[in-house]
Amino acid sequence: MKLNPQQVQKVAKLANIPVSEEEVEKYSDQLSKILDYIDQLNSVDTAGVEPTFNITGLSNVLRDDEVGESLSQEEALKNTSQKKEGFFVTKGVFEEG
């Protein structure tokens, strides 16, 4: 299956990764190869096989509504490069909700 440049652009946009013209070319090729590899799975006949969403076979694993310990503000912000007055900071985005 061959991914065209538009599709690569779309995937890049969904992944929020900027790509250059050359990269689109390069990834188009690489991603197509990955898809071909995965496509081998289609050679197996799965008619009548239930899809597996979860391999534990468990259901209703629930916890009681009890409050536990949280990280301190300092700990929470420890790994961010940009912070201000206890907030994480990112470049401005428009509120789109």
Binding site: V67, E69, Q73, A76, L77, E85, G86, F87
Partner: peptide, 28 residues
């Protein structure tokens, strides 16, 4: 209005609290 969050045990009432004081690896 549960006491804890949906998928972790952090305190769920965030109204007028100091920012980022009710977080953990799950909700971060």
């Amino acid at each position: 209005n549960t006491k804890s969050k949906m998928f972790c045990r952090c305190f769920a009432d965030y109204f007028s609290k100091e920012p980022n004081t009710h977080t953990c690896p799950i909700c971060l």
